[in-house]
Design a protein around this nucleic acid. Structure first.
Lengths: 95, 95
DNA sequence: TTAATGCATCGAAATATTTGGATATATCGA
DNA sequence: TCGATATATCCAAATATTTCGATGCATTAA
């Protein structure tokens, strides 16, 4: 797909990744074979439900996560395409 | 070199990249053939010297920039190694 | 239909970040 | 040496983010 992210978007993605809980949420979701539900995330941290929801929302707003509603639950998946585009941008600075 | 960054470091790097001025500073420095001086950065933005200095400091603290003193000036360079390690970490999420 | 569950949103307090002025320090040029 | 230049640091104000309790809303189970 190879989308081109503008600077505003790069900033948003970076900001979303710049928090320890959000990084751990990403890792949790990555480690799942299948998509993860929010309640599992809540069980993992010493954070209130609303705080976890807020963090997850930021990851979704940055398009790092894809949310899929499934009845009462919501399943989250890593948006690999956006990660790839972010990495592509960062490669400008590396090798 | 292939250094392994811990989560705390990943967070710091992400946070450093999560600001529009700091992203533009990185781009400015990248675009230089040779290293850039702080005064050039200040001329580029509508920000005070102390604010620019503060932003540059955060990039240095995250090891995204290498500062080299040269008389009255300081030259900045992108730390490609750290970018590569950061990209390597992010690749866990992408492809 | 009603109660319970899963998640989102609102509002407010606590905390962190951003910003610029003032000042410090080091170096250069005259 | 003395004044000017380049950058860093300190402080405080402005702004943004994080956090949680309360509440709302949709869905499922009884």
């Amino acid at each position: 797909m190879n989308m081109k992210l503008d600077l505003r978007k790069i900033e948003k993605i970076s900001k979303a990744l710049g928090d320890p809980y959000r990084l751990k949420i990403m890792e949790l979701i990555k480690q799942q074979k299948c998509a993860l539900q929010c309640s599992s995330i809540i069980d993992t941290f010493e954070l209130s439900q609303s705080t976890v929801s807020h963090h997850v929302k930021q990851l979704i707003d940055a398009d790092l996560l894809i949310a899929e509603k499934d009845g009462r639950h919501v399943n989250y998946q890593v948006n690999k395409e956006v990660f790839d585009s972010y990495i592509k941008y960062l490669r400008n600075f590396g090798n």
